[in-house]
Amino acid sequence: YQDQEQRILKFLEELGEGKATTAHDLSGKLGTPKKEINRVLYSLAKKGKLQKEAGTPPLWKIAVS
């Protein structure tokens, strides 16, 4: 689980600052079920590491501290 968090954070960091992506996109790029990706995304957002942008589907990006 920790491993997934690292992979997602790394992927988003590599996208570049301010760039956002969807759970669907992450799921495809990382070869992980979207349900699992979503769980990790919401967990990271709760920890303040990610920012969720409203929309359908929601967009995710690295939180700027």
Rank of each mutant, 00 (worst) to 15 (best):
K10Q: 12
T22L: 01
S65W: 07
A23H: 02
K49V: 13
A45F: 15
A63K: 08
L15S: 07
T21H: 06
L41P: 01
K10Y: 04
Q6Y: 09
T32L: 14
A54V: 11
P57S: 04
L9G: 01
K61F: 03
L50P: 00
K10S: 12
L50W: 00
S27I: 04
I62M: 13
S27C: 11
K29D: 04
K52C: 07
Y42N: 13
Q6D: 11
K61L: 02
S27R: 03
E17V: 11
E17Y: 05
Q51S: 13
A63R: 12
R39M: 08
K19Y: 09
L9Q: 04
Y42C: 10
G48S: 02
E5S: 06
S43C: 11
I62P: 05
Q2N: 13
K34E: 14
N38Y: 09
L26C: 03
D25N: 14
K52I: 07
Q51A: 12
G55C: 07
S27G: 06
K49E: 11
E5K: 04
A20S: 14
A23Y: 01
E36S: 12
D25C: 10
Y1C: 11
Q51C: 11
K47P: 00
E5H: 04
G31I: 04
Y1Q: 06
R39C: 08
R39H: 14
Q51H: 14
E36K: 15
F11A: 14
Q51E: 15
P58Q: 04
E36G: 04
K10H: 09
P58R: 03
T56M: 10
S65H: 04
K29W: 08
P57C: 03
Y42R: 15
E14L: 08
I62V: 13
L59V: 13
E36Q: 14
E14H: 10
D25A: 13
S27L: 02
A54N: 14
K10T: 08
L59I: 07
L50D: 00
V64D: 10
Q51W: 06
A20C: 12
K35I: 14
L30A: 03
A23K: 01
L59C: 09
D25F: 15
E5F: 02
A45R: 13
V40A: 14
R7V: 08
D3K: 04
D25R: 06
G18K: 07
F11E: 14
R7K: 10
G31W: 03
T21V: 13
S27M: 07
L41W: 00
Q6E: 14
K49T: 09
E14A: 14
Y1R: 05
T21W: 12
L30F: 15
I37K: 00
I62C: 10
P57K: 04
L26V: 05
R7T: 07
